[in-house]
Write a protein that binds this DNA or RNA. Structure first.
Lengths: 337, 337
DNA sequence: AGAGGGGAGTGAATTGATTCAATCCGATCC
DNA sequence: GGATCGGATTGAATCAATTCACTCCCCTCT
């Protein structure tokens, strides 16, 4: 036993956890032994005793989407301030992967889970709830009163996006969507329809271009399909910026001018939206804030011993960021001397 | 004890780990009890006994860089095939963060670590080696014979990039670099200088624009500084694509045409490089492959009981992808009818 | 001087899964 | 019928840290 190196047993524990309760003399001796032996206390053992680990899990839909990376950043910062580690995992929008990861988290006895659900039925999480491990929904309204949630008002986001297009005179808007399992997709559509209705336009003014993935490649594909539409919509609202970037690439390759021929609005306002071929108008979501809030709520719940915690549901507001892809183009680029 | 629910003790363990060694009858009874009680075996307990966990750590320089996300993807896939979880962490190029995370990994007794070192001195990893936890360097040549490594030939990458610019007639190239602690930065510079030398140009042909961060914002800043240079280089080689995108934005905002006035070459060939304002020429790195190989080498080392494992160092080759940012511009965009 | 108090340190119990030597039991063999 | 064999099952030991009731010892107060 490494502790023998010093002289004692559970005193080592005191040196590490309550140094003030140990004489400076003894403490120094133990610390020296620790240093000499390169001793590192085993988390597994503490965990076993404590019943849960000091790791928080974050399960996102797509690690390749900078939006989720921002969420992870916010969550990670909050977690580290509390001395916890974060395990970031990727469900890839698959219910099976999600279920598998949730099982892994239960085995690990993580202290809590932040999750962007891929499973619209909520079955995975319902099953997970048995384990009494706290979890917080991220980027999704609360599905029950049994947990906290932080999300962004996606209906409003859809309204902002399409409202902007409608007020610029567009009368037919394509919606490059995604799997209908995802609330985000449905809510944004609903917002889009609401914006059209407000301008006296019916649901036929929204031409849906479905897509099963939500990445740049899927966007390119959707762009190609958009070009084949007759009559062709004069504007596109994309369910996220990755799709929008793909659509933009497609249009660009086909020689269609943005925004003159077709206007584009994306969603998320990822960093790369501003750096796109045509800087992208997008609906900004406070991703980092969302990640941080979710983590803080989770910590509050996890640390709650006296049953003081009350589940909350926070809805943040999105913000429209208008750039070139949906507004009158600036004049021709001025060459520098 | 949950196991009592059935009737036995360590038989539960057999049901789970060696089902064939248990009578179907008993097995069914135990499984029923497991189901009924919602039992999930505790990883902490197994870990404690096994001495190490079933989690692999991945410590990258910047989660916000899609290049590292691709590495993570490759590693994660390989790890999951072996039934392991991956804990992705972000050192943010900070030696302190790196040290802190390595400490965390040691406490967790992770089965191995994949790391893109932030600490050029190698001190952090040297200290970490005491714990006898295998680790593999990713995107960095082996620093000693005590570990495996997978990297990409950055000198060659720098040569490809600048060689391409030189052969297009450029005689003065800016190098938007990063912290000199990073081997990647140094090697790419060395490659750039070699390419210039090959064309009979001295080191003064490479104008360095230093930068401490490697993100889009730092790129915008570098772009501003580039514009102030007299005489102004006719081409820029950026140490990564994020910087390049930032530079591009800066130039674009100032009305400088790319590639006519200034050509740009990036590094990494992230997905967004192709979708940039001017599609970016870049040096492609096999990130996913690198992540996968690193994970596989780590698994081989971790699973090696008989001392069969020999440390290896794999060097992959980069590839130049030429796009508009460094080549003659295509004709004016053709409007569609 | 003896009792009482308190700070320092001890070590057994606890946590849950795994492992392994030991036990049990039915069946086969001599 | 007794011995032997082997598959099924058991339960104690193990892993490392934490916790807590307990011991020790020294100091102070009466």
């Amino acid at each position: 036993m490494a502790r023998r190196a010093g002289v004692s047993v559970g005193t080592v524990s005191n040196v590490i956890n309550r140094p003030e309760a140990v004489l400076p003399d003894t403490r120094a001796r133990v610390l020296a032994a620790i240093e000499e032996l390169g001793y590192v206390r085993s988390e597994s053992a503490r965990q076993l005793r404590a019943g849960r680990s000091r790791i928080m899990a974050l399960l996102v839909l797509d690690m390749g989407n900078p939006f989720f990376v921002d969420i992870a950043r916010g969550a990670e910062r909050a977690a580290r301030e509390a001395g916890l580690g974060v395990m970031v995992c990727n469900s890839d929008q698959s219910q099976e992967e999600e279920a598998e990861y949730l099982g892994l988290f239960a085995e690990q006895r993580v202290c809590g889970v932040l999750v962007t659900p891929a499973d619209a039925t909520g079955g995975n999480l319902e099953a997970f709830a048995r384990h009494r491990i706290p979890y917080v929904l991220v980027d999704r309204v609360a599905a029950s009163t049994e947990h906290c949630a932080v999300c962004v008002d996606d209906v409003r986001g859809g309204m902002l996006a399409v409202g902007h297009l409608v007020s610029a005179g567009h009368r037919s808007v394509a919606y490059v969507s995604g799997p209908d399992d995802l609330y985000q997709i449905r809510d944004r559509r609903q917002g889009a329809l609401a914006a059209l209705a407000e301008a006296g336009l019916g649901p036929e003014a929204l031409v849906e271009i479905p897509s099963d993935r939500l990445d740049v490649a899927a966007g390119r594909d959707a762009g190609a399909r958009l070009l084949g539409l007759v009559p062709r919509p004069t504007a596109v609202f994309c369910a996220n910026d990755l799709l929008a970037l793909g659509v933009l690439q497609s249009l660009y390759a086909a020689g269609v001018r943005v925004p003159q021929d077709i206007a584009i609005v994306g969603y998320d306002d990822i960093e790369f939206a501003a750096a796109a071929a045509v800087p992208l108008t997008s609906v900004r979501q406070p991703a980092t804030v969302m990640g941080r809030m979710a983590a803080e709520m989770l910590l509050e719940e996890a640390d709650d011993t006296g049953g003081v915690h009350r589940h909350r549901s926070v809805v943040l507001q999105p913000e429209l960021v208008v750039r070139a892809s949906s507004s009158a183009p600036r004049g021709p680029v001025r060459p520098t001397p």
